[in-house]
């Protein structure tokens, strides 16, 4: 297990790049999902008003 975490001496580079990559992908996905929900809510409200 320690060998894996050490990554042959390149631990900082490998783990930080994987961490940054997945963190930003997840954040980006979440931002878009939350935005979509917000827009759908507003859209449905205005639609009800118009109807």
């Amino acid at each position: 297990m320690n060998e894996l975490l050490d990554m042959g001496g390149y631990a900082i580079f490998v783990w930080s790049s994987y961490g940054i990559f997945f963190f930003s992908l997840i954040i980006f996905l979440l931002i878009n999902i939350l935005n979509l929900r917000k827009y759908e809510k507003i859209f449905n409200k205005t639609k009800k008003k118009i109807d």
Partner: peptide, 13 residues
């Protein structure tokens, strides 16, 4: 060494 494992996320992106 192990630093080339970054390639697996760098090249696709």
């Amino acid at each position: 060494g192990d630093s080339m494992r970054i390639m697996y996320i760098h090249v696709p992106s």
